[in-house]
Design a binder for these strands. Structure first.
Lengths: 192, 192
DNA sequence: TTTTTGATTGACTTGTCAGTCAATAACCGG
DNA sequence: CCGGTTATTGACTGACAAGTCAATCAAAAA
């Protein structure tokens, strides 16, 4: 076995296994041993490549966040300029990061971000990017893009949350968010 | 010390301490010892009254859920019949269950509900009641109360989530949800 | 006063888990 | 084919936490 250049493969396997394990357990209370076993190696090796459990979690979180970013970016490049908002929403519910294990892991990373500084930083970056994307997409189509962006971002998170809890069903998720967006855009002023 | 009838007091203290401890730690990884210490007793006593960590968590979750139910119910009884929707939203963001520790604990209970059957049951009851309340409030004011209720429920959860993450700020939370509701009601049809 | 009963805890048991380490195996370039 | 490097693990440890238990203490009841 001991060929050279295993590191990237091992790391990727561990990251994937981490997401699956967290998704299956529905919690961060998974042991390095469980993760390593699922990834087909010893726990010692997992420590060798990542240094510690926290770093494994962070890598998994980065992976999920990156996947999400990529989905949104792809949707955005394919979108017509006046449909950027819909693209962001579609990207947010791409099957990739919308599979049960990922959503469940995502939910648990929320909790993780409350404890771990770096995790909090990652999450804040994600939130900022989403907000900025939304504002940009909304500016030409509504007169209060900041406020609308906050509302839509919350709606996305809320729908995500419910998807994570009721594992998987939630088919019309994107449509629901689009409905909200549509309603907000059609109404001139939403102050109360 | 050993007077009679300590049990209710002890249980209440433990429940409160559990919420505080989970809120402070930002995670369910709190020890029975920590909880008991915060509640001013030994861990053995906590076990004596509750039987185990899981039951302590469940009791804390029930407490939060009950508090929420009470807030909504109170707001609902005080509301004019045509403002029931706004009352539900206000009740959902009552300062009681909206304080940082409670929201943080709430978030972690979401995670707990993925693991523990009873916790899942409690959460589903809460979701069902919220949905039913919303539908009832929406029926006279819109033609698709079911769909609107799901959207507004998701919005409430999403705003809650963001409040839990960015500990505490989030002052105009209720207003944002009301804005969404308002927009949904003014638009006749929201299908995409 | 004596007995019963709830309240309470320190000490203990048992288990688990993160992280370490020394040893082994297999590739690679020279 | 040899010395260096990477890969890999079994075995170990130190810490910590859940849950148990027997003993103690003090109020209440008899």
């Amino acid at each position: 076995m001991p060929k050279i250049g295993q590191e990237p493969k091992r790391r990727a396997a561990l990251v994937a296994a981490t997401v699956e394990e967290i998704g299956a357990a529905g919690s961060l209370e998974v042991t390095v041993g469980q993760i390593a076993k699922r990834a087909g190696m010893s726990s010692a090796l997992a420590h060798h490549y990542f240094g510690g459990k926290t770093q494994i979690f962070l890598a998994a979180m980065r992976h999920i966040l990156n996947q999400y970013s990529r989905d949104v970016r792809d949707a955005l490049t394919k979108a017509q300029p006046d449909r950027r908002l819909e693209a962001i929403i579609d990207g947010s519910f791409d099957p990739n990061c919308f599979d049960p294990a990922a959503t469940s892991a995502w939910l648990n990373f929320y909790s993780f971000a409350q404890r771990d500084q770096e995790a909090g930083r990652l999450l804040r970056i994600y939130q900022k990017r989403l907000h900025s994307n939304l504002v940009h997409a909304l500016r030409p189509r509504c007169d209060k893009p900041q406020e609308a962006a906050q509302i839509i971002a919350a709606q996305i998170d809320g729908v995500y949350l419910r998807a994570a809890l009721n594992k998987g069903d939630m088919n019309g998720a994107a449509d629901k968010v689009k409905a909200v967006a549509q309603a907000l855009l059609e109404v001139k002023t939403y102050d109360a």
